[in-house]
Simulated scan of single mutants.
Amino acid sequence: MRSANYRAFHRRPPAIVQVRTTALGDLLEPSSHRFVHIDASHMYDDVRGDIDITRRILRPGGVVALDDYRTERVPGVAAAVREAVFTKGLHPVCVSANNLYATWGAGDPLREAVRQWADGQEGMKAVNERIAGEVMVRVAGGHTERRCLARQLARELLPRRSPMRTAA
């Protein structure tokens, strides 16, 4: 099913690159991604490098989802995320139970979209939290909040390329 889903929107099969994520930075075009989900190694140095790569490859207004940002069994993730927020200029947009969604640019339009979306969902709520002088949205409620939240953020991002359009 997933393969058929992918083929409905892409003419070519996906390029599968099997390398350490630190090598991806040189393989990916600058400003080429709307959404990046980091969920590979949980070691501090690796996560730190992955976050640094997103600064180069995300489009303006793009979002990085950081998985396990507060899981006690992987403290390296929390340390790398905090470092990026407090010293590198990563702006938190919102959090769910295990993911932090952030952007390198202005997060206000995304925060507002998430707030409106969550307030319209039964059993969900958006709560403003202030961190380092910035407002971040905490989304609470519902067992599917992570998947739904990621989908909502993807809708709010820069327009996608039209289906079936491929790079020359």
Rank of each mutant, 00 (worst) to 15 (best):
residue 71 T to R: 06
residue 113 A to R: 09
residue 154 A to W: 03
residue 140 A to H: 03
residue 116 Q to D: 14
residue 5 N to H: 07
residue 158 L to K: 11
residue 71 T to M: 08
residue 142 G to P: 09
residue 109 P to Q: 11
residue 45 D to Q: 06
residue 18 Q to M: 07
residue 141 G to M: 04
residue 98 N to Y: 09
residue 67 D to P: 01
residue 34 R to S: 12
residue 85 V to R: 14
residue 52 D to S: 14
residue 52 D to W: 02
residue 114 V to D: 02
residue 165 R to D: 14
residue 150 A to S: 12
residue 48 R to N: 09
residue 19 V to E: 15
residue 37 H to N: 03
residue 35 F to R: 00
residue 39 D to N: 10
residue 26 D to N: 14
residue 107 G to Y: 14
residue 119 D to F: 03
residue 157 L to C: 04
residue 7 R to A: 15
residue 3 S to I: 12
residue 147 R to M: 11
residue 60 P to H: 12
residue 165 R to E: 15
residue 45 D to Y: 04
residue 32 S to G: 13
residue 133 G to R: 08
residue 142 G to L: 10
residue 126 A to V: 06
residue 55 R to Y: 10
residue 62 G to V: 05
residue 52 D to R: 14
residue 73 R to S: 12
residue 164 M to F: 05
residue 85 V to L: 11
residue 10 H to R: 05
residue 76 G to I: 02
residue 24 L to C: 13
residue 39 D to F: 01
residue 61 G to E: 00
residue 81 V to W: 13
residue 78 A to D: 04
residue 168 A to F: 09
residue 58 L to E: 06
residue 144 T to C: 08
residue 63 V to S: 01
residue 1 M to E: 10
residue 81 V to Q: 07
residue 87 T to K: 06
residue 65 A to P: 01
residue 92 P to W: 09
residue 30 P to A: 11
residue 133 G to S: 09
residue 84 A to K: 07
residue 55 R to L: 09
residue 98 N to I: 07
residue 163 P to H: 09
residue 104 W to G: 01
residue 4 A to W: 06
residue 153 L to M: 04
residue 165 R to M: 09
residue 41 S to L: 05
residue 2 R to G: 13
residue 15 A to E: 11
residue 31 S to N: 11
residue 145 E to F: 00
residue 20 R to I: 06
residue 3 S to Q: 11
residue 98 N to P: 00
residue 11 R to M: 06
residue 110 L to H: 07
residue 114 V to Y: 04
residue 165 R to Q: 14
residue 38 I to A: 01
residue 61 G to M: 07
residue 152 Q to W: 02
residue 125 K to V: 03
residue 59 R to V: 12
residue 98 N to T: 12
residue 26 D to M: 13
residue 25 G to D: 15
residue 23 A to M: 05
residue 36 V to H: 01
residue 39 D to R: 02
residue 44 Y to F: 14
residue 65 A to T: 02
residue 109 P to W: 03
residue 86 F to T: 09
residue 112 E to P: 01
residue 11 R to L: 15
